[in-house]
C-alpha cells in the first residue's frame, strides 16, 4: 500500500509539472487520448502482472499484439472471415499460446525468459510471413466493430468522454482485483509466487495456477492487440507492437510487482501504466525537439523509481 501511494505521488507530481509547462496537456482532446492509451497499455500490464506474480515473465507480448493486431484485418479483409469468427479464432489462439507457454514452464521446467523470448520471435515472424510484410487495415468498413476501440461513452456534465478501451480496462482491472484480493486462487497465486515448493506442500495446485496466469496474460495481450489495430486502422507486421512488452513490464514493476514473484496489486499496476503514458505525453508536449530521446528518458525514470523504492525500503527496515 505504501508503495502504491508513493508511485501515485510521483504520478501526480509529473501531471502537475507537465500541466504547468504545457497548456495543451489539460485540453480535453489530449486528456481523452491519454486515457485511451492508458486503457490499451493497461490491459496488457494487468495481464503480464499475473505472470510476474508467479515469478515468471512474458516477453512475447509485443509479438502477440502484432499477431492479433495484424491478424484481425488479415482474416477479415484478406481472408473474408466474419467478425465473430475472426475474433473468436484469435482469442482462442492466444489462449492456446498462453497454455503452451505455461506447459513449457511447469511441465518441462523451461525458463519463462527463454520460452517467451522464442515466442517473441516466432509470433511476429509468422505474422510477417502470412501478410507478406504488407501493411494491413480495415479501410472504411467495420465501423461498428471498431467502435470497441474508437467508441466513446460521454460522461454527464463533463467536457470529456470515456474511450471504450479505458472502459474495458476498468472492467478487467475490477475482475483482476477481485480475483487477487478476494478469491482463494488469488492468495494461492501470491503464495506460489513467493515459494512454489511451500505452496505445493500446502496442497495448492501450483501448475494449474501458473498455466492460468500465462493464459490470462496472452489473452489480454491479444485483446489489447485487437484494440490497438482497430484504433489506428493500419498495422504493419514488421513493427506493430514492437517493444510493447517492455512498456507493460515496466508499468507492472513501477506499480509494485516484484520480478522475484509474490507481489503485485492491480491498483499499483494501473497507476504504473498511467505514469508511463503521462511521461511519454510530457516528452511530446514539453520537449518536442527531443522526442527521439523518449526511450532514454523513460529508462532513466524507471531506474530512478526502482532505486528510490529500494532506498525507501532500506530506510524503513532500519
Amino acid at each position: 500500500m505504501k508503495k502504491t501511494l508513493g508511485i501515485f505521488v510521483v504520478f501526480l507530481l509529473i501531471c502537475v509539472l507537465t500541466a504547468s509547462l504545457s497548456d495543451v496537456f489539460l485540453r480535453p482532446q489530449n486528456v481523452e487520448n491519454l486515457i485511451m492509451r492508458i486503457g490499451l497499455y493497461g490491459i496488457m500490464a494487468i495481464g503480464v502482472s499475473f505472470v510476474i506474480i508467479t515469478g515468471g515473465i512474458d516477453l512475447s507480448l509485443g509479438s502477440m499484439v502484432c499477431l492479433t493486431g495484424c491478424g484481425l484485418p488479415w482474416l477479415l479483409v484478406k481472408c473474408g472471415w466474419s467478425p465473430p469468427m475472426a475474433l473468436m479464432a484469435l482469442l482462442v489462439l492466444t489462449l492456446l499460446i498462453g497454455l503452451t507457454h505455461g506447459l513449457m514452464v511447469t511441465k518441462w521446467r523451461l525458463q519463462p525468459f527463454i520460452v517467451t523470448l522464442c515466442g517473441l520471435l516466432i509470433y511476429r515472424g509468422v505474422m510477417r510471413g502470412l501478410a507478406s510484410d504488407q501493411s494491413l487495415g480495415f479501410g472504411s468498413a467495420y465501423d461498428s466493430l471498431r467502435w470497441l476501440a474508437t467508441g466513446k461513452i460521454p460522461l454527464p456534465g463533463a467536457t470529456i468522454s470515456l474511450p471504450m478501451p479505458f472502459v474495458l480496462l476498468m472492467l478487467i482491472a475490477g475482475a483482476a482485483a477481485v480475483f487477487l484480493r478476494y478469491t482463494v486462487w488469488g492468495q494461492h497465486l501470491l503464495a506460489l509466487g513467493h515459494n512454489e515448493e511451500a505452496a505445493r506442500h500446502s496442497g495448492i495446485r501450483t501448475h494449474r495456477l501458473i498455466l492460468a496466469s500465462y493464459m490470462i496474460c496472452s489473452l489480454l495481450a491479444g485483446l489489447a492487440g485487437i484494440l490497438f489495430s482497430m484504433d489506428v486502422n493500419s498495422s504493419q507486421p514488421s513493427d506493430f507492437g514492437n517493444f510493447y512488452e517492455l512498456y507493460a513490464i515496466a508499468a507492472a514493476v513501477l506499480g509494485g510487482c516484484s520480478l522475484r514473484g509474490g507481489q503485485g496489486a492491480v491498483l499499483g499496476v494501473l497507476i504504473g501504466t498511467a505514469l508511463m503514458q503521462v511521461l511519454r505525453n510530457m516528452i511530446v508536449l514539453v520537449f518536442p525537439a527531443h522526442q527521439n530521446m523518449e526511450f532514454a528518458i523513460i529508462g532513466v525514470v524507471i531506474l530512478l523509481g526502482v532505486v528510490g523504492d529500494e532506498i525507501f525500503k532500506r530506510a524503513f527496515a532500519k
Binding site: V184, Q187, H188, L190, A191, H194, N195, A198, H201, I204
Partner: peptide, 21 residues
Amino acid sequence: KQHGLVLEFSVQDNLTLPSLE
C-alpha cells in the same frame, strides 16, 4: 523455510493457507 512456510507471508496467512478453500 523452503517447504513449510511462505516466509514473506504473515503468521495468519501461513496458518490459513491449506484451509482457505
